[in-house]
């Protein structure tokens, strides 16, 4: 369905601790990503802040509770609230995760991995089509980090996500840090993952920090992005081009300037790796 996703440059996640700074200083930033659920059910201060921020920046919506792989099916009430927010915010991109987060009527508040089976592919493809039909937009699914695998998985993760994206007509939000984390946890070469993904499917990158727990890496979104993930990002830029990139930092969130520094590093890498496509993108957007 999508081969041309908007090229937005580099953005950061909008977090409550930065609301005042962003509103008071309107810092230079290409775009902000919001967690959809933080605004779907709130008509108070969060929505007021979002409206103000939308006046200055493009917004991308990223969800954590769509539960696209849930065997229980999709939550229609959730979809209605999501669509209402999409219609109001008119985001540049809409995404969620390739996982499940509820089962048997219980919300688990996590991004739980799916077995890589044909059964899961059929279910997710059907549900992605339902979502896209309902919200009248394409979505992207993000590869999630995981800490175990299923013995009955029938294919590697890259084949699983590619098949779903191609059959459902959705995009892939490629989380570079999650590829790195899973490569360590499941002992595969991260380049194999990146090289297996068709470039036209990729609409966004995520970059984040993680924690080293010795026997496994934990996707905590804490701390700066590590050097190996930056290197992998450069590899991804070469393969996928000037893809919109998000810096995620969700625990022990630092002052906004620190996020800006990370975003600036990503912009610099875009320029170095792709011979100034970042500057070209800006010229395309604002021709003199």
């Amino acid at each position: 369905m999508k081969s041309e996703w908007p090229k937005l440059g580099v953005g950061v996640g909008l977090r409550t601790v930065h609301y005042e700074h962003v509103l008071n200083h309107i810092p230079e930033m290409d775009w902000f990503e919001i967690v959809s659920e933080n605004f779907m059910d709130s008509g108070g201060r969060p929505r007021y802040i979002l409206d103000k921020i939308r006046e200055h920046y493009p917004i991308v919506m990223h969800g954590v509770s769509l539960s696209i792989g849930s065997a229980d099916g999709l939550d229609q009430e959730y979809l209605e609230r999501l669509k209402a927010l999409i219609d109001e915010v008119d985001p540049q991109l809409v995404s969620d995760h390739l996982c499940f987060s509820n089962a048997g009527g219980d919300q688990l508040h996590d991004l739980l991995p799916l077995p890589h089976t044909d059964e899961a592919i059929r279910l997710v493809v059907k549900q992605v089509k339902q979502v896209q039909d309902f919200i009248e937009r394409p979505i992207m699914l993000e590869n999630v980090s995981s800490y175990f695998s299923f013995k009955h998985s029938e294919m590697p993760e890259w084949e699983f996500i590619t098949t779903i994206a191609e059959e459902a007509g959705c995009g892939i939000l490629l989380d570079i840090n999650n590829i790195y984390v899973n490569a360590f946890n499941h002992k595969f070469d991260p380049l194999t993952f990146i090289n297996a993904i068709p470039p036209h499917l990729v609409g966004q990158f995520h970059l984040a920090g993680h924690s080293d727990h010795d026997t496994y890496l934990f996707d905590t979104h804490v701390g700066p992005i590590i050097e190996d993930v930056w290197k992998l990002y450069q590899v991804a830029l070469k393969r996928f081009g000037c893809v919109s990139t998000l810096i995620e930092w969700d625990s022990h969130i630092p002052p906004f300037q620190e996020l800006q520094d990370e975003a600036n590093r990503a912009k610099k890498l875009m320029n170095i790796t792709l011979d100034n496509p970042y500057d070209q993108r800006r010229l395309d957007a604002h021709p003199s």
Partner: peptide
């Protein structure tokens, strides 16, 4: 039905999700 490519047992790795659930 679970496996890990490490000395950690599947139970130990399930614990990551269980702890995360309670913390959140």
């Amino acid at each position: 039905h679970l496996e890990t490519k490490s000395t950690d047992s599947p139970e130990k790795r399930l614990e990551i999700y269980r702890v995360g659930y309670f913390i959140r």
